[in-house]
Amino acid sequence: MPWDVEVQHGEGRSDYKSEKRCQRTSLAFYQAVRDGLPPWLLEDMRRMEVFHWEADGQARAFSPAEALLYALVHDHQAYARHLLAGFSVAALEPPSGSFRCCGASGPPHLAAAVRYGRVAILKMMLTALKDLPSEGARRRFLDGGGGGCPHDADGGKTAVRLACDLLRPECLLLLLGHGASPGLGDGAGATPLDALLRRMGGEPARGPAEARGRRVCLGYLLLFTPRPHQGLHQRLAEREPEQWRRLVGTEAFRWLAGAASPPSLFVRAMQTLVRSVPAERLDCLPGFLKPIDFPL
């Protein structure tokens, strides 16, 4: 059985057999998550039957954070919910060295959720961040570079940058709405907005879906980025203005060129609220959404 794994240093044959057993149990766990087995059964496997082999020659059980990565890959929402409810932010800790390249540190969960387009699980993880001990810890998780490994396909990009590169507007809105920074630059200093504009100006969209995805991501970035019409953005808007107007739309072009600023998210929210809530129910709004009553 998998729990019979024994590591005996100095006995190469025993180490080889133990490593092979770990590989078999790891594969069994991967397949069980892929096949959507119930969370209680997966947890029984993880805690009692399944091991993975570390580079230091030790067999270790999968941590909740490593199990969550498997749930992300296979979109096992019930298991992800179970892990986050049972372990909270412990399920979002960095995985062990065998799950990372080049000794990169930092949790890769947000980057994995964006890359695989796991919107439901991403929302669960962002909700769980309220349990982090400090705002600094929350900020580091939101704006970390997914482990920072230069050999990774994500290249250590922030989750926001990755959502823009992969045109995942649903993921981008969730990240920005939960406080992820839209303005962090990469190693060359390019922000997500810089990179998206360069892509829009240099690479024709491959069909209407990609063109729409670019515009939606651009719109979200502009709404969440303070003073977005500076530097590169203004220079782009001044060069070939009609082309840029066609690429990004008239309203976004005016924001980029500095002719206007995007309305605040509060104004946008109030506009939507007034249009969607019946007039007779506007008095039921919470106090912070009502006009200030100045004394006469």
Rank of each mutant, 00 (worst) to 15 (best):
V50R: 01
T250L: 09
P208S: 12
G57Y: 09
E93W: 04
P39Q: 12
P39W: 00
D194A: 11
V119H: 13
G213W: 02
D194N: 11
W3V: 09
V73E: 09
R81P: 00
L273C: 14
C22S: 14
P286D: 13
D75Q: 14
L193G: 12
R246Q: 13
K130S: 14
E238N: 12
A90G: 08
E43G: 05
C149Y: 04
G185N: 07
H233I: 09
R199C: 14
A153M: 01
R24D: 06
F253M: 12
D15Y: 03
K290Y: 05
L41I: 01
D44H: 13
V50I: 08
S96P: 01
L176S: 04
S14N: 04
M124R: 08
P38E: 04
L175G: 11
H82L: 10
A128P: 02
M45I: 03
G249M: 07
M125T: 01
W53Y: 07
R138S: 08
A279M: 08
L247Y: 02
G187D: 06
M48L: 06
M125N: 10
P64W: 02
L110P: 07
A279W: 05
Y70T: 01
G36V: 08
L132P: 10
D283C: 12
F29D: 02
E93V: 06
R275G: 09
F29V: 00
A269M: 13
R246N: 03
H178Y: 14
L222G: 07
G287N: 14
A211I: 03
H109T: 01
Y16F: 11
T191L: 08
L172T: 06
A211G: 03
E66F: 00
V277R: 07
R168G: 06
G10H: 06
R168M: 09
Q234N: 04
K157T: 08
V7K: 10
P228C: 10
A279T: 10
A112D: 06
Y79R: 02
L126I: 04
H74E: 10
A209Q: 15
G258I: 12
P278T: 07
A252E: 12
C149N: 08
P278E: 10
S63F: 07
P262E: 12
G179D: 11
R21A: 15
I121G: 05
M1N: 08
